[in-house]
Simulated scan of single mutants.
Amino acid sequence: MAIITNKRSVMTLYSGAVDILSHRVRIVLAEKGVSYEVINIESRGKTEDLLELNPYGNVPTLVDRELALYEPNIIAEYLDERFPHPPLMPVYPVARAKARLIIYRFDREWGPLIRKLETGKINDSRAAAKELTSYLLQLVPAFNASPYFLGEEFTLVDCCIAPVLWRLPAWGITLPPAETKVVNKYADRLFQRDSFQASLTEAEQELRKSAKAETA
């Protein structure tokens, strides 16, 4: 739900430096080439300002003039409509509905597993890693079928998947060699986009570097 707040002159994103949902929104903002201010909540704690904007006090929260939004998929679609070029959703209603359903399934099926992986509890993390690996293996044919998940164009679906793939080494998730080759080819295509590189925080860059160093 959006709320009315004091008008701000610059679009503002309340974000977590390694928060995976914040990362999703940062990719969308970078794809659109939007200038915005970032307020890192993890380093400052929940502020009264954020709680006034978002009753849940969580990130990401986007403020655009009088509007405050605090659900990542609503934020992403709002940005896609507010800044129509380049488009990040299919044009036709059926394809748009399918894209929304894919994102919904990712959030519903992957979300709880990711939260367990990020808690760092060994037993929970091992089970979650195994289950997430199973989901990723199911998607290998889709990763191999076209440059991006829905076809030739980069979409909001790819914005959802990219932060997950970026964090796999940090979660200790590895795939069988044949599947790794396919997933890495798709992942590298996402990671090499200017928007993805621009979306990364220093903490997210370090997250992957540290994980690779440990496995080297």
Rank of each mutant, 00 (worst) to 15 (best):
L150H: 01
L165F: 10
A128T: 12
P112Y: 08
P93H: 03
L150Q: 01
W171F: 15
N144D: 11
P147N: 08
L62Q: 05
L139Y: 14
A76H: 01
F143P: 01
L165A: 06
F106S: 06
K116H: 14
K121C: 05
A127C: 03
I161A: 00
N123H: 13
L137A: 10
I114T: 12
R105A: 05
E152T: 06
A127W: 04
V164P: 02
Y70V: 08
V94E: 06
A68P: 04
E71Y: 03
A95I: 03
P90T: 07
L156N: 00
L132C: 06
C159E: 00
A128R: 03
F83L: 10
W166Q: 00
C160L: 07
D107N: 13
A68R: 02
R108Y: 12
A178E: 08
E71S: 03
A97T: 12
E81P: 01
L156V: 02
L168I: 15
P177G: 11
E152K: 09
L67D: 09
L168E: 04
S134M: 05
Y135T: 09
R100D: 08
P90W: 04
T155Q: 04
L132V: 07
I103L: 08
T133N: 13
Y78C: 07
N144S: 07
I173Q: 08
T133Y: 02
Q138I: 11
L67K: 11
N144K: 07
L132D: 00
E81W: 04
I102H: 05
S134Q: 13
Y92D: 15
E66A: 07
H85V: 07
E153N: 00
F83G: 01
R96D: 12
H85L: 09
P177Q: 10
E152D: 15
L113A: 09
D158H: 01
Y70L: 12
L69H: 01
L67P: 06
F143R: 03
M89Y: 12
P84E: 14
E179S: 15
P169G: 09
A170V: 10
V164C: 02
L117N: 05
I161H: 01
A129E: 11
R100I: 01
E77M: 08
P87V: 00
L67R: 10
T119G: 15
L150W: 00
A162Y: 00
S134Y: 11
T155W: 01
L79V: 05
S146N: 07
D158G: 04
V63C: 03
L132A: 08
